[in-house]
Design a protein around this nucleic acid. Structure first.
Length: 751
DNA sequence: AGTGCTAGGT
C-alpha cells in the first residue's frame, strides 16, 4: 500500500477516491500509472486502475499474479474490462499456457454477456496458439458474429495442422456468402500451401487472385510465386516471375531458393547473374541465398567473388550474410577462410555457432567442436539450439566420450534442445558408440515415432556391440511396425550378421532385399557379404561370391577379403587380394600391412620387408596404434612401449604380475620373437593402468578405447585378466566392442 | 524471403 497509494493520490489530488479499490499491495514498483493521462476520467471509471494493473501484469507474463488479483477485484466488486481480457489472452498465447487460457475463458464467459468479435478473436487466437484447435473450433462455431480476422485466424490454424480442407472450406464459405476475401485472406491461404500435394488448391487460389484483381499487389504476387516454389512447381513459379511487371528482390530470392532446394543450384546462380545484369538492388537475402547455392555446388571461386562484394558493401558483419558465407567456405573445405569470415560477424547467432561447430565436425576436429560448445555454454543461452547439440552429440560419438556425452545430453534436456528425430538419432549413435546400449535404448524408446534413421542407428548399435540376435529382432520388429528399411538399414543388418558369423541369414537378407523390401542392393551390400564369408573363414566361398556378383569387386571387396585372409592365415589368397587392393587403392595402408603380417607369420621375412619398402616408397605410414582410458575425467593415452606416464613403473610392474600367463599354453603357438613387443602393446598398458586405478575396489568395468583393431594376443590377455582379477573389461577398438567377463569375451572370439 | 543438424562397413 505504499508507493502506489501515493501515486494514486497524486492522480486524484483533491478528493479521496469515491469507489472502493482493491488491495494493491501486490503491485510491484515497476507499474507505471503515468500513462493514464486524464485524472478526471479515473474518478468516474470504476476499476480503471485495477484494470491497468491487470494489463501491466499480463504484459509481463505474470498470469498467476493476475489471477490472484481477480480475487481482490471480486472482493472490491470491480469488474474486469474487455481490454484487460484481451491482454491476458495475449499473455496466455505468449506463454503457450492452455490451462491459464481455459480458466480465463471460463471467467470471461461468466463476465461478459455478449463479448465483442474482437475479444472473441483473441480467445480464438489463444486456443489456436496454445495448441487446442478443438476449443478454438467450439468457440468459432458458437460465435454469433464473425469477421475476417476470425476466419483468417482459423484458416491459418487449420493450415498449420495440415487440415487444408478445412482452411479451404472457410475460404469457399466466404466466396459463397459473397464476402470479398481481403488480401490477408489470400496471403494466409497461400502461405499454408506448402507441399506438392497442395499444388492443385494453390492453382485454384491463384485463379481467384487473378479474378479478384489483386495480382498487382506485390505481397500477394510474391505469395503466389513462393507457393509454387513450396509446392515444387518451378515452371509455374517461373511463369509468375516472368509476368511480374516489377521484380522485387523477394521474387528473385524466392525463385532462387526453389532452384537450390530442387538441386538446381546452377539455375539459381544463372538467375543471380541476371539479377546482377539487370541492376536489381541487392539485399542481404540475395546474398544468403546465392551463397547457399555456392555451398551446395562447392563453388569456392564464385563464393570468394561474392565474398568480395559482401565486403565492399560492408555486409561481412551482418549475421545473415556472414553465416551463409561461413557455411559456404566450410562446404568448400576452406576452413581457414570460414574461421576468418566467422570472426567478422559482429553478433554471431545460434545459427552461426552451429555452422562453425558442425564445421569442426566436418573437418574431424571433434575436440575443437566440443571445446567451442563448452565455451558457448558460459555465454548467453540464445546461442545454443538443437542443431548445435546434434553436432556435439556426433562429436561425442566419434570420441566415444560417454562422460561428456551424457552431460551434454542432460544439458540439452534441461534446455529442451534435443532435436526430435535428428538429435535423437545422433544420441542413439552416440550412446551406442560409447558402449552404453541401455542409454541408447532409453532414447529410442522415448521417441514417439522413430523414423528409419533412428531404427537404423539402434540396429547398428547392436551390430557394433556384436549383439546380432537383438539387431535382427529389431529389424523384424521395425518391418512389422510398417517402417520401410532403406539401403543403410541393410548395411546395419548385414554388419550384424557379419559380427556373429551368420552366413546363411546374411545371404538370405541380401537375396530378399529387392524382392521383399524393394531396396536394390549396391556394391556396398555385396562387400558386406564378402566380409561375412571372409570373417567366417570360408575364403573360397568368398572368392566364388566375388566372382559371381553383379559388380566388379572394388577396393573394399578386396580389403574385406584380405582381412579374412589375415585372420584365418590364408597366405596365397592374401597375396592375390593384396595385389588387387594395392592396384585399386594404392593409398590404403591395409594393402601393405596385412600382407606384411601374413609374410611375417609365415616367416617369409624377405617378402615382408618388400611390403614395407613398397609402403615407404609411397610415403605411406602405418597408423600408430594408440589406446586410452578415462580416469576421474582425465584421459590417459598410451602407445606401444610408452614410458611417459607418471605411473610408468607401477604400470609395468602390474603387467609383470601376469607374466605367468605369457608363459602359458595359449602362447605356445605365438612367435617368441615378438614376445617383447607384445608385452607393452598400448591396450595392455591401458588395461594395467585401469587395474591400478581400480585398486582392488569393484567399480564398473574398465573401459579401454583403441584407435585400431584389437590384437588377438591382447584379446587373449584381456580374457585372462578378467578371469583372474574378476574385473570386467570393455575394449572398444576401431570396429566394435569387446566385453570381457570371467575369462570370456562378448564376441565369442568371432571378430 | 534467407543461413545451421541425424543412421554405415574396412
Amino acid at each position: 500500500m505504499t508507493t502506489i497509494l501515493t501515486l494514486q493520490s497524486s492522480l486524484t489530488p483533491s478528493r479521496a477516491p469515491v469507489t472502493k479499490h482493491a488491495n494493491f499491495n501486490q503491485i510491484p514498483s515497476w507499474v507505471s500509472l503515468k500513462s493514464s493521462t486524464s485524472s478526471v476520467k479515473l474518478e468516474h471509471k470504476q476499476g480503471q486502475v485495477e484494470n491497468l494493473h491487470l494489463v501491466s501484469l499480463s504484459k509481463h507474463g505474470k498470469l498467476n499474479e493476475a489471477f490472484e488479483f481477480f480475487q481482490e477485484m471480486d472482493k472490491a466488486g470491480v469488474s474486469v474490462a474487455p481490454y484487460s481480457y484481451q491482454c491476458l489472452f495475449e499473455a496466455c498465447r505468449e506463454l503457450r499456457s492452455l490451462s491459464h487460457g481455459r480458466v480465463l475463458h471460463d471467467r470471461m464467459r461468466k463476465d461478459c454477456e455478449s463479448p465483442s468479435v474482437t475479444l472473441q478473436n483473441c480467445v480464438l487466437q489463444m486456443y489456436c496458439e496454445c495448441g487446442s484447435l478443438e476449443d478454438a473450433d467450439k468457440v468459432f462455431d458458437e460465435m454469433p458474429e464473425l469477421n475476417v480476422v476470425s476466419r483468417v485466424t482459423m484458416m491459418s490454424a487449420y493450415a498449420g495442422r495440415g487440415l487444408l480442407d478445412k482452411a479451404v472450406g472457410l475460404f469457399s464459405g466466404m466466396l459463397e456468402s459473397g464476402e470479398k476475401p481481403t488480401s490477408s485472406v489470400y496471403t494466409t491461404l497461400l502461405k499454408s500451401l506448402v507441399n506438392p500435394r497442395d499444388l492443385n488448391v494453390g492453382k485454384q487460389v491463384h485463379g481467384h487472385v487473378i479474378r479478384s484483381g489483386l495480382l498487382g499487389n506485390a505481397s500477394i504476387e510474391a505469395g503466389v510465386l513462393n507457393m509454387y516454389v513450396k509446392c515444387g512447381w518451378l515452371v509455374g513459379a517461373k511463369l509468375v516471375f516472368d509476368q511480374m511487371v516489377v521484380k522485387k528482390p523477394v521474387a528473385w530470392t524466392g525463385l532462387m531458393i526453389g532452384y537450390t532446394k530442387a538441386g538446381r543450384a546452377r539455375d539459381a546462380l544463372k538467375l543471380f547473374v541476371d539479377l546482377v545484369t539487370e541492376g536489381v538492388e541487392w539485399d542481404s537475402f540475395v546474398f544468403s541465398v546465392v551463397l547457399k547455392a555456392c555451398a551446395s555446388l562447392e563453388e569456392v571461386n564464385l563464393g570468394k567473388q561474392i565474398h568480395a562484394c559482401v565486403a565492399k558493401l560492408g555486409l561481412e558483419s551482418d549475421v545473415s550474410v556472414g553465416t551463409p558465407l561461413v557455411d559456404c567456405y566450410i562446404k568448400c573445405s576452406s576452413f581457414e577462410s570460414a574461421l576468418l569470415a566467422f570472426e567478422k560477424i559482429s553478433e554471431p547467432n545460434d545459427v552461426s555457432w552451429s555452422a562453425i561447430i558442425s564445421g569442426y565436425c566436418q573437418m574431424s576436429q571433434f575436440e575443437e567442436a566440443i571445446k567451442t560448445f563448452k565455451s558457448l555454454r558460459t555465454k548467453s543461452a540464445a546461442v545454443l539450439n538443437s542443431f548445435t547439440y546434434t553436432s556435439v552429440f556426433q562429436a561425442c560419438s566419434v570420441l566415444a566420450d560417454c562422460n561428456i556425452g551424457g552431460q551434454v545430453h542432460g544439458d540439452a534436456i534441461k534446455r529442451s534442445l534435443v532435436g526430435s528425430q535428428y538429435g535423437e538419432s545422433a544420441l542413439i549413435t552416440m550412446y551406442s558408440k560409447c558402449g552404453c546400449l541401455d542409454d541408447a535404448r532409453a532414447v529410442f524408446e522415448s521417441m514417439d515415432n522413430p523414423d528409419v534413421v533412428a531404427w537404423t542407428a539402434f540396429i547398428s548399435g547392436h551390430a557394433y556391440y556384436g549383439n546380432a540376435s537383438e539387431a535382427l529382432r529389431l529389424f523384424e520388429e521395425m518391418v512389422r511396425c510398417g517402417m520401410k528399411p532403406n539401403s543403410v538399414t541393410f548395411i546395419a543388418v548385414l554388419t550384424a550378421c557379419s559380427h556373429a558369423g551368420l552366413i546363411e541369414q546374411g545371404k538370405c537378407y541380401l537375396d530378399t532385399m529387392l524382392p521383399k523390401y524393394n531396396v536394390a542392393p549396391t556394391i556396398d551390400h555385396y562387400d558386406c557379404m564378402i566380409d561375412i564369408y571372409s570373417r567366417a573363414g570360408v575364403l573360397e566361398e568368398a572368392l566364388k561370391f566375388m566372382k559371381s556378383m553383379p559388380f566388379e569387386p572394388d577396393a573394399m571387396s578386396w580389403k574385406c577379403f584380405l582381412s579374412g585372409c589375415w585372420t584365418h592365415k590364408y597366405l596365397e589368397l592374401g597375396e592375390i587380394a593384396g595385389e588387387e587392393l594395392r592396384q585399386l587403392d594404392p593409398e590404403d595402408t591395409a594393402g601393405y600391412v596385412l600382407p606384411f603380417n601374413l609374410y611375417t607369420q609365415a616367416g617369409r621375412w624377405e617378402e615382408a620387408a618388400e611390403m614395407m619398402k613398397l609402403m615407404n616408397d609411397k610415403m605411406l605410414k602405418k597408423e600408430l596404434s594408440c589406446s586410452w582410458i578415462r580416469e576421474k575425467g582425465k584421459i590417459h593415452r598410451f602407445i606401444v612401449g610408452d614410458k611417459h606416464h607418471p605411473q610408468t613403473q607401477e604400470i609395468y610392474e602390474k603387467l609383470k604380475e601376469f607374466d605367468d600367463f605369457m608363459e602359458g599354453d595359449v602362447f605356445q603357438c605365438s612367435m617368441t620373437e615378438r614376445r617383447e613387443q607384445l608385452l607393452d602393446h598400448s591396450e595392455r598398458l591401458a588395461i594395467a593402468y585401469g587395474l591400478i586405478s581400480v585398486n582392488g575396489h569393484a567399480r564398473g568395468p574398465i573401459k579401454v578405447f583403441k584407435n585400431l583393431r584389437a590384437c588377438p594376443d591382447c584379446h587373449e590377455f584381456a580374457k585372462h585378466v578378467s578371469l583372474v582379477t574378476g574385473h570386467e573389461i570393455i575394449i572398444r577398438d576401431s570396429r566394435r566392442f569387446h566385453h570381457f567377463k570371467e575369462g570370456k569375451c562378448s564376441c565369442n572370439d568371432y571378430w
